[in-house]
Nucleic acid binder design. Structure first.
Lengths: 191, 191
DNA sequence: CTGATTTCTTAATCTGGATTAAGATTTAAG
DNA sequence: CTTAAATCTTAATCCAGATTAAGAAATCAG
């Protein structure tokens, strides 16, 4: 659980005691490659930190097409905040793309921490700020950039994750078809 | 400032004293129809609550095309959170669409309130949660719905704002051209 | 190893919505 | 009122990226 502690400590100033008692609420969970972490219709009552592995969150439309909304790896949080906060049944699927180890905390325990270690509320507020910022960046990028530009931005932001994730997942994250992504990569290689 | 106080009181439990001392940090600002509230290149150091009027936030691309990101009216907050939180120079414009009265608080005063009236940090966290939720809803809707469906969703969510805002602004919010919106409305009227 | 399944590529065709252009209507200023 | 400017509509043409189809390459289970 050391990575998680370092992660929190890098974002807020927190004393050893509070950090230990907060992180003691987390449980470790392990998933196999391609295993589902959360299915549509289930409630997402935990906030999840990725210790090792790669995870994606996706929406499945009425024709069965998957639209990837988030991709995360080591030292990132699984972003299903929408359903975590609304407490509604998730319509999104969370899936491990590689063998993955996460640490998770239940909503109730997080809410208790807001009271017992108030600095945790600051931590969550900052996390939310960043999540909001990156979602807005992604949304604006989606609207103002072509498919090729979006792919280049993805490469910049996600580095080696590109090689750890199937291409059809990346395509669905970029909101294009796998065929089109294939064409873009071919075109870029030639230049 | 009564609306603002009612608004805050409806979201968190706050005692009269804290509420008054928090809201005393807000200043009133008035804008004419079509007046700009914030220009690209300026810093957005205030959080703004709309008391009366209609405001939009938009991005201007390299060809001068405007993309509307948020539309807000009475009892809503002006959503330029991205630049408020990053402290970067805004690339977005905030504009009053009607004659508008807002109440604003400076970032520094908000941060002091986190310490002096801790319940305000809860308030901002909840605001952020909702902003995140509606941005994610909008993003998913943008990806999974056709232009016509997006228009119908807009009508449902925004009610009478439709009639208070020029149609080319609505088109840019829906990420379509005014011509296409015109066609959609025509098609819907026939059925 | 080997066949089966999954993933990726290539290429032809199609389409939602953009672009362009021009006229009609509304709004605002004198 | 009257005119100019802003906004909205209609219609023809165009294009980025989708869809469809089929073969190639990689991965996996036995």
């Amino acid at each position: 659980m050391n990575n998680l502690r370092k992660h929190i400590d890098s974002i807020i100033e927190i004393d050893e005691k509070d950090l230990l008692s907060f992180t003691s609420n987390f449980q470790k969970k392990s998933y196999l490659k391609n295993e589902n972490i959360l299915l549509p219709g289930e409630k997402n009552d935990c906030l999840m930190y990725i210790n090792t592995g790669v995870v994606r969150v996706f929406y499945t439309d009425s024709e069965g097409k998957e639209i990837t909304i988030h991709i995360g790896s080591e030292d990132m949080w699984v972003n299903n905040l929408y359903y975590f906060f609304t407490k509604r049944e998730s319509i999104l699927t969370i899936q491990a793309i590689e063998e993955t180890v996460i640490y998770q905390i239940r909503r109730g325990d997080l809410e208790k921490a807001y009271t017992n270690q108030p600095v945790i509320e600051t931590f969550i507020r900052l996390k939310l700020q960043r999540a909001f910022i990156s979602l807005q960046e992604r949304t604006l990028n989606q609207i103002t950039s072509t498919a090729e530009e979006r792919y280049l931005t993805f490469k910049q932001n996600y580095g080696d994750i590109e090689t750890r994730v199937p291409q059809y997942v990346i395509a669905s994250y970029l909101n294009i078809t796998p065929e089109h992504l294939s064409k873009i990569r071919h075109r870029l290689l030639k230049n």
